[in-house]
Design a protein around this nucleic acid. Structure first.
Ligand SMILES: [Mn+2]
Ligand SMILES: [Mn+2]
Ligand SMILES: [Mn+2]
Ligand SMILES: [Mn+2]
Lengths: 223, 223
DNA sequence: AAAAGTATTTAGGCTAGACTAATTTTAAAG
DNA sequence: CTTTAAAATTAGTCTAGCCTAAATACTTTT
């Protein structure tokens, strides 16, 4: 009996919520509920099941944490998702704002064999169309040392390395101002109070909202 | 609200059962139950739902027939299934006995956009890896005038045009005796009482079981 | 035309996942 | 150290699909 679509999405969600924080507290059920757009009661229910099946450890009123098994399954799903995204862009002419919705469904339907066939056909890619790393067959994923655009100092020249944003509308907006993976940009000014960030892209000036900038990860431009 | 996986499979199943017979009676619920491996009561239930949603017309104790809407959806699913099969063989090195299981799941997960992208990438193929015709975007499917191998007269030379069989084991067996799509063969003798059929393939003689031969469709060899 | 045999439907249950409303627990504020 | 607010759990429903067992309705045989 393999994991259901629901279980797969919950594990993926928990993985993404526990990753960045590194706080000693577990993932809150409310965070899961809001990310998956389900009621908190539904999460409580599902967490109990995930715990019974050994995918998470759980302390009521405290938080959830993936077990080794759970993390493996989560990484397998992330691999599936990202390989599919990359394949759609590389081989079937999808745009980077179209792949996430398709992958979100397909990830539950493809076999391991198919994922590996796509991965091999692409030449074992290491990153998806948004710059996120693709775990290998053993679930090992290299996290690149990139930093958030909002932390870049004024005047610095960087290039776009990763976009942690799945909204098609926002992705299209970024395209429209000339941003694409690997594209160079310079931070001109940063308004206070988490205000807009002025960017120079292709000799054009653009004001980028702080919330959007938070999802953009950059690395120093190799001269 | 689009059709569920279950509904899609039921419609596809009904389509295939009503196609060959051309009897004036509808499709029997027992036939659906045995083909889908579910209990008859489950079929009764689902038929009621399909009828409510306008996919089939239904006369209790008589039979089921697809409506125009139902047939359209069924043909869309068949298109999806066969495009996926062909894509897996042509682009991802699948063997013809491996594609059906994968397609049976994927057909419920792919978008129309993806199916069309695969179809275009392949150059708008007209047939799947087993020789079955692929409906076009409007659901129009050309039925080729082939005949069953069991109806071929002794001595006749024909070529394999289609295999109505999804069992990986039997498909591999056919491969092992030298049969592939388009492969030429000659019927040497046909044993009585639906007995084995002796075939000459590549100058080798093979005895083929009648039940397997029923699924093989052939056309006259173009000299 | 009645009896026996099939085919089909009905009745009643089960599991997975979701929801709302009500309650309980923990955290934050005064 | 209370009071209040927020977070999480429990209780009770719902829908989709499936199941088994029992009751009907056709069909065939005698
Ligand atoms: Mn998903
Ligand atoms: Mn992505
Ligand atoms: Mn299917
Ligand atoms: Mn096929």
């Amino acid at each position: 009996m393999s994991a259901s679509k629901a279980i797969e999405d919950y594990l993926k969600c928990i993985y993404k919520l526990e990753d960045p924080s590194q706080t000693e507290k577990g993932v809150h059920t409310s965070a899961i509920a809001s990310r998956l757009n389900v009621a908190q009661a539904s999460v409580s229910n599902m967490i109990k099941k995930l715990s019974d099946q050994g995918f998470v450890s759980y302390e009521p009123y405290y938080g959830v944490a993936l077990t080794t098994t759970g993390r493996q399954l989560a990484l397998q799903m992330i691999r599936r998702h990202r390989v599919i995204e990359q394949y759609l862009v590389e081989r079937l002419h999808y745009a980077w704002d179209e792949v996430d919705a398709e992958a979100e469904v397909l990830e539950h339907a493809v076999s391991d064999k198919l994922v590996d066939a796509m991965w091999e056909a692409l030449g074992r890619p290491t990153h998806d169309p948004h710059g996120s790393p693709i775990p290998d067959q053993d679930g090992i994923m290299s996290e690149q040392p990139v930093k958030a655009l909002v932390d870049v100092a004024e005047g610095e020249q960087v290039k776009l390395a990763r976009i942690k944003n799945r909204s098609p509308e926002e992705l299209r907006y970024l395209t429209s101002i000339g941003l694409a993976m690997g594209e160079g940009l310079r931070v001109k000014t940063k308004a206070p109070f988490n205000g807009p960030i002025m960017l120079e892209i292709n000799n054009e000036l653009h004001a980028l909202d702080y919330r959007i900038a938070q999802a953009l990860m950059v690395e120093r431009q190799h001269d």
